[in-house]
Amino acid sequence: MSSHPGLPTETIQALRGFGRAAGGALIFSLPMLMTMEMWWLGLYMDRPRLLLLFLTSLPLLVLLSHHIGFERTTCWRDDIVDALTALGIAAIMCTSLLILFGTITNETPPQEAVGKIVIQMIPAAIGALLAKSEFGSPSGTDDDENPQSKRQETYGGELFLMGVGALFLGFNLAPTDEMLLISYQMSEVHALVLVACSLVLMHGFVFAVGFAGGSQISAGEPWWSSFTRFTLPGYVIALGISLYTLWILGRIDGLHLDSLVMATVVLGFPSAIGAAAARLIL
């Protein structure tokens, strides 16, 4: 890596950090930045729900920073600063790209522009926070290779990561019409098979990826043990995140209980994969 004469090392590292975070934000938010349903949501989405989405994302980002942020933090204050930094980088990236795509112009009303940016900021901020795990640390070392810097992983932490994985994949798909259309096309028998598929695939990922820390799955452990302790809670989290995402985006307004359950099971499928593969994605 070439040095940059005239710039202090701290400045170079900070710039690299911002660059990595911007890259992470770009990777995580690009599919949604280029999806027209997301632009429309920014236009018509219920403002109290948009505010709720933004407010609930703050503790999520702080917790995410605590678990796997773009720098090793030692206290909650650092996590809050990192979460706010990630949101700031996400705001810059989303605003720039929405302007570049012509989705926000000088004729766009401020209320609409803010709606379009805020709804895109959440996945982008998650991407910015996860930039380190996506691209590695600037010095070429990784925390995974350094046992001393590795944070102790807990069962709650594992379930939280599953939730973030579910949110990442679920939030990508929840705004699309296809989620509801698929649920309308399916019968309850299809839904039962989809629940079974979600659980089987999730469990496959849980075994393939494994879980670290105090909750490690040992080789001699029966399948139903890890299925009960990880796969079932992970699936319930995925369903909960799916229901929350569908509701907050106004996708299930006016739906009867049957249709609501069907839509949740449909979105629960990709969310379950996201939850189970959280260790790979995040």
Binding site: Y155, L159, V195, T228, R229, F230, L232, P233, V236, V265
Partner: peptide, 18 residues
Amino acid sequence: WTVGALSGVLVLCLILFL
């Protein structure tokens, strides 16, 4: 195991409903 059992009950309720 407690979290797993509660989750199992919820998933069972979903399966019974469907």
